[in-house]
């Protein structure tokens, strides 16, 4: 018998002589008992099916219920605003002389100021709505025309030439006077009579 046979015999003998660990039987029985104590596999599935059925029935019942039945408990009741609170919501009046950069038309601005309180307040208080939707006093001014803008610039920086531009008749008269003066200055004098 060579070394390989001896080694093989030693391995097989070692496998044969292996003793089970101490108290293995108790551990095996304990694990099996624990496994046996676990609920069966049928119970969870039946429980899940029952829970799903109850859930679907609850959803259907909620959808079938009339809307008015639960409105009183879900609508938020806002307190009635006092006069001071309404005054706060009304926008302040616009300045009399609008800023030069204010390009928005007056209609849009009025519409914006009229919409904002409506969005802030609920429909349950007509007094507050009436106060909020009332027209602003005084109303916003219209933008200046080109002539008004020119007048304002002239009033701030007076210029005679520009004043003449505003009155065609005076302008024509001034031009005529200037031409007369030019001609009078450059017209050659009449030849004097030579003495004999």
């Amino acid at each position: 018998m060579n070394n390989s046979d001896q080694d093989l015999k030693r391995i097989l003998n070692a496998l044969r002589d292996t003793e089970p660990p101490r108290a293995m039987q108790q551990r095996v029985l304990a694990s099996v008992a624990q496994r046996e104590a676990m609920p069966s596999r049928i119970f969870p599935w039946s429980f899940v099916a029952l829970a799903a059925t109850v859930g679907i029935a609850a959803i259907l019942a909620i959808n079938v219920m009339p809307r008015g039945a639960h409105s009183s408990s879900e609508v938020t009741v806002l307190p009635k605003p006092s006069v001071s609170q309404v005054a706060v919501t009304v926008p302040a009046p616009q300045p009399l002389v609008p800023h030069a950069s204010a390009k928005a038309p007056a209609g849009n601005l009025a519409a914006q100021t009229a919409r904002r309180p409506h969005q802030l307040l609920c429909d349950c208080d007509p007094t507050a709505l009436a106060e909020a939707n009332a027209p602003s006093m005084p109303p916003p001014e219209l933008p200046l025309t080109e002539q008004e803008k020119l007048l304002r610039r002239i009033a701030r920086h007076p210029n005679p030439v520009e004043v003449a531009e505003l009155t065609p008749a005076a302008r024509e008269a001034k031009i005529a006077a200037d031409n007369d003066d030019f001609k009078a200055f450059f017209t050659p004098p009449a030849k004097a009579q030579a003495p004999e």
Binding site: T18, P20, P21, M24, V28
Partner: peptide, 20 residues
């Protein structure tokens, strides 16, 4: 059964788990 499992696994703990 432990020796049967141990002949395959060659580990005492693994063989015990196999018996369980």
């Amino acid at each position: 059964l432990f020796r049967v499992a141990h002949s395959v696994l060659r580990s005492r703990s693994e063989a015990e788990d196999a018996v369980q």
